[in-house]
Structures are given as structure tokens and as C-alpha cells.
């Protein structure tokens, strides 16, 4: 409400003719103001410019391979032998998808529950403790997550989850344990789930706070329990925001490199089970940057992998941001 007024006030105040007569030196000051304004404007357009520059330069650098091979061969080809001129991205794309999907699926239930708990149930004290914990979790560098994955999650998958799955779930093909090492999609997914959780939770928490208290009270006043209120009134209101938060989390998971690289096993085969080792696109790029210039088209192939990642992430990002921003704006409007 105040936000709206604010922008209106800006308009009226910046109009020069709407102002009072100025003391001497005013012209000079106004010129300074305009120059600064122009400089700042250029700097401010930098972010928008930067997105375009990054995209365009990657397109330019990947053009040689995109024009040399049909897209079908690149994206559906299963053989990656740069020395023989074979650049099949398919196993890497499938691996990226699997790792991201497992990460987001694992993160979804706890993130929704925690954000509901923090916004609807928790005491002020719990909230004030939870915030720095989430901040710290978000601040831990990817490579440290990688160390944690290597030391704790890989053995956990190997010693606990894989035997469990062999015992109870071996008939389901995606839970089949083909090469028991612990390194693989599941380990990467668990690490990713923890990595993207702080972002997802904080976005969801914001989204929950856009629901006016009047609605909650209206439901509570007829004798609904808190959970009934959440399920029937709050959740339907925030459903798009929850999905957007998960998509945002997915976009983070898609591009995560080092942490995944350390625990995923890096085997360039199309995975068939979550216990399989795999080789996602970011890992491919990071592992081969050194040889990039040694083989023709290799650098172009790797940069086109980066381009594919960028485009998918941009789409995910922009879609989820638009939904989230719209929901947060509604809060200001009401």
C-alpha cells in the first residue's frame, strides 16, 4: 500500500516544473544530478546486459559444433568419443535429469513441512533459531558439501540404503543395485537435497506469509484445527508459489557442479537405477576443461553443454521468479 504511494510520489517530485524556485547554483546541481543519473542508469542496465552477453558468447562459441552436427546426433547420441569426433550428450543429459529429480523429490516433503512449521506453528524463539541455521546451511561452500557427501553419504548409501533396497525393492528397476559402490545418483541427490533446502524453505516461508491472517482466523473461528486451516485455506492459496519454489530449487540443482562431481561416480552410461553411477553435464564440463583445446570441436562441445544448462536454468528461473514475484506483490497490494 505504502509502496504504491511511494512510486506515485516519485513521479510528482522528480518533475522539475513542479518544484520551487531554487537558490543560485541550482542549474549546476541539476546538471550534476542528470549526469550522475545517466551514469547510474548505464550501470543499472548492466545486469540485463550481462545475461545477454553470457548467453550470446556461449551461443557463438558453441556454434561450430551445433552447425557441424544435426541436433539429433548431439542430444540423442549415446557415444562420447571426442577423439573420434563423436559427441553424444544423451547419457549426460539423462544423468543431469535424474540427479536433479532425485534431489528435488527428496527435498520436497521436508521443505514444505519445515516452511509450514516455521510460518504457522513455530514460536518466535524457534523461528529466530531456525533462520541462522538455514543461513549457515546456505553459506557452506559446495566443495564442503562434497566432502560431507564423500565421507558420510556415499558410505551410508553403500552400507545402509543399497542393502535395504536389495532386500525389499529389488523388483523395482529404478531401485535396483547394479554396481554397489555408494557413488551414484542417490548419493548426489541426497547431497543436492540438503544444498537446495535453505533456498526452497526461505522462499516458501515468504510465500506462506503472503496469506492474510484474516483468512486463517475466519477458518479458526468456526472451530477448524490448525492443520485443517492450513490444508483447506492456506495451501490452496500458496500452491503455485510452492511449485515455483521447487522449480527454483531444481534450477539450482541442475547447475551444481563440484559437490555432485565428487559423489556421483562419473560413469558415462545412461543410468537405469538411482543406485547407478552417472555423469551429469556440469561434471562433464568441469572434468574436461583441461583438454578442451587439444581436440577439434571439443571446446565447442563442452561450451554447448554449458549453453544447454544455461538455457534450461534460465527458463526454470524466470518462470519461477515470475510466479514468486507476483505472489509477493499481491501481499503488498492487499
Amino acid at each position: 500500500m505504502t509502496q504504491q504511494n511511494q512510486s506515485v510520489n516519485y513521479e510528482t517530485i522528480t518533475k522539475p516544473e513542479g518544484r520551487h524556485a531554487r537558490p543560485s547554483g541550482a542549474a549546476h546541481r541539476r546538471r550534476l544530478d542528470q549526469n550522475v543519473r545517466r551514469t547510474f542508469l548505464v550501470v543499472t542496465l548492466l545486469p540485463i546486459l550481462l545475461i545477454s552477453i553470457v548467453t550470446i558468447s556461449l551461443i557463438v562459441r558453441s556454434w561450430p559444433i551445433l552447425s557441424a552436427y544435426p541436433l539429433k546426433d548431439l542430444f540423442l547420441g549415446t557415444i562420447w568419443r571426442p577423439d573420434k569426433g563423436l559427441f553424444g550428450f544423451y547419457p549426460y543429459i539423462v544423468a543431469t535429469f535424474w540427479v536433479t529429480a532425485v534431489g528435488v523429490l527428496l527435498a520436497t516433503p521436508p521443505c514444505i513441512l519445515v516452511s509450514i512449521y516455521l510460518s504457522e506453528y513455530a514460536h518466535l524463539l524457534t523461528r529466530t533459531i531456525a533462520k541462522p541455521i538455514l543461513d549457515l546451511l546456505a553459506a557452506i561452500p559446495p566443495v564442503v558439501y562434497g566432502v560431507w557427501g564423500l565421507v558420510a553419504i556415499v558410505p551410508f548409501v553403500d552400507k545402509v540404503l543399497a542393502p535395504f533396497s536389495e532386500r525389499w525393492l529389488s523388483s523395482v528397476s529404478i531401485f535396483k543395485v547394479n554396481q554397489p559402490t555408494g557413488f551414484g545418483i542417490l548419493a548426489a541427490g541426497i547431497v543436492l537435497a540438503v544444498m537446495i533446502a535453505p533456498l526452497i524453505i526461505s522462499v516458501m516461508y515468504e510465500i506462506f506469509s503472503t496469506v492474510p491472517n484474516d483468512l486463517r482466523h475466519a477458518s479458526l473461528a468456526v472451530g477448524a484445527t490448525q492443520w485443517q486451516t492450513i490444508r483447506t485455506v492456506v495451501l490452496p492459496q500458496v500452491a503455485p508459489g510452492i511449485i515455483a519454489a521447487l522449480v527454483l530449487g531444481a534450477s539450482r540443482a541442475l547447475g551444481e557442479t563440484i559437490a555432485v562431481l565428487i559423489v556421483v561416480g562419473n560413469v558415462p552410461k545412461v543410468p537405469t537405477s538411482i543406485f547407478d553411477a552417472a555423469y551429469p553435464l556440469p561434471a562433464l564440463i568441469a572434468n574436461n576443461y583441461g583438454d578442451m583445446m587439444s581436440i577439434p570441436l571439443y571446446d565447442s562441445a563442452l561450451l554447448s553443454a554449458a549453453l544447454v544448462l544455461l538455457i534450461v536454468i534460465l527458463i526454470f528461473n524466470i518462470l519461477s521468479m515470475l510466479v514468486i514475484q507476483r505472489m509477493l506483490r499481491r501481499k503488498w497490494a492487499s
Binding site: 553470457v54 556461449l58 539450482r252 541442475l254 547447475g255 557442479t257 554449458a306 544448462l309 544455461l310 536454468i313
Partner: peptide, 9 residues
């Protein structure tokens, strides 16, 4: 939201 690997590339 752009991942650092893309910035690296």
C-alpha cells in the same frame, strides 16, 4: 541463479 560452472565457461 546462473550456476558458477556456466560463469566459468
Amino acid at each position: 541463479g546462473i550456476p558458477s560452472i556456466v560463469y566459468g565457461a
